[in-house]
């Protein structure tokens, strides 16, 4: 549906008055953010629907990571709001439907891959058995690495362990900040196949990456974020 421009400005009100069904998908509405008193983006609208992969592009420092962190609720925008299927990000229940993997792996170096993922699943209230964790690690070609402390794994292997979360949590929304960092060609192929499968199952992916995605992924919508002074 196309809304007139002035309606877009105040569309939350517009919709509540009309009492229409809530908008589905991830919606970032009217987002404004500053970093070190520099404006990253202002009045930004972004929408991610189920069954869609959005590739967020932009030069370094444009605010891609900041936008991602706002969209998952790690930082709050100065203006605007974020909602998932019509539910505001501040509701704790929203977390059940999101997996976010950022620059930092979120893995403790002293714990093994298996321990890291076990505790992570416990935190996210997932009923995941040990076998399932081994399966997920095997899917990422990490057989034999399950019990090794993370700090002894290579950067690419660590990234794979971090990405194994996508196999463990049945979430619709995947928000991935540079998921391909330090992955080898085989790892990238693996991930791209997984993306295509997730999208085909009505999942939604928002990702940043400085490298282009191959055709394996299928249809990709590209959004640009410009660097501003």
């Amino acid at each position: 549906m196309v809304l007139p421009a002035d309606m877009v400005e105040c569309w939350p009100i517009f919709y509540s008055q009309r009492a229409e069904p809530k908008l589905s998908g991830l919606i970032g509405n009217n987002l404004t953010s500053h970093k070190q008193d520099r404006c990253l983006f202002q009045h930004l609208h972004i929408r991610l629907r189920a069954g869609e992969l959005v590739h967020l592009k932009g030069p370094n420092g444009a605010g891609k990571s900041s936008l991602m962190r706002i969209l998952v609720g790690l930082s709050s925008p100065e203006e605007g709001n974020v909602s998932y299927d019509g539910v505001d990000i501040s509701e704790p229940a929203v977390a059940n439907n999101i997996v976010f993997i950022g620059h930092k792996s979120g893995l403790n170096g002293l714990l093994s891959a298996e321990e890291n993922l076990t505790y992570w699943s416990a935190q996210h209230q997932l009923d995941v058995s040990n076998a399932e964790i081994y399966e997920a690690l095997a899917a990422l070609n990490l057989v034999g690495m399950e019990e090794v402390p993370i700090k002894n794994l290579s950067a690419g292997q660590q990234r794979r362990v971090a990405l194994a979360r996508l196999w463990l949590k049945p979430a619709t929304y995947w928000l991935l900040d540079e998921p391909f960092t330090s992955l080898d060609a085989e790892g990238i192929t693996l991930m791209e196949t997984a993306f295509a499968e997730h999208v085909s199952k009505q999942g939604a992916i928002l990702m940043t990456s400085h490298q282009a995605l191959s055709e394996r992924v299928g249809r990709v919508r590209v959004e640009h974020l410009d660097y501003r002074l």
Binding site: G73, L74, P92, K104, S105, G106, N108, Q123, Q125
Partner: peptide, 18 residues
Amino acid sequence: RDDFADGSLEQMQLSGIP
């Protein structure tokens, strides 16, 4: 410190636990 540096804290914050 460690949980902040390696991103574990991020993941905890996104777990839905207050």
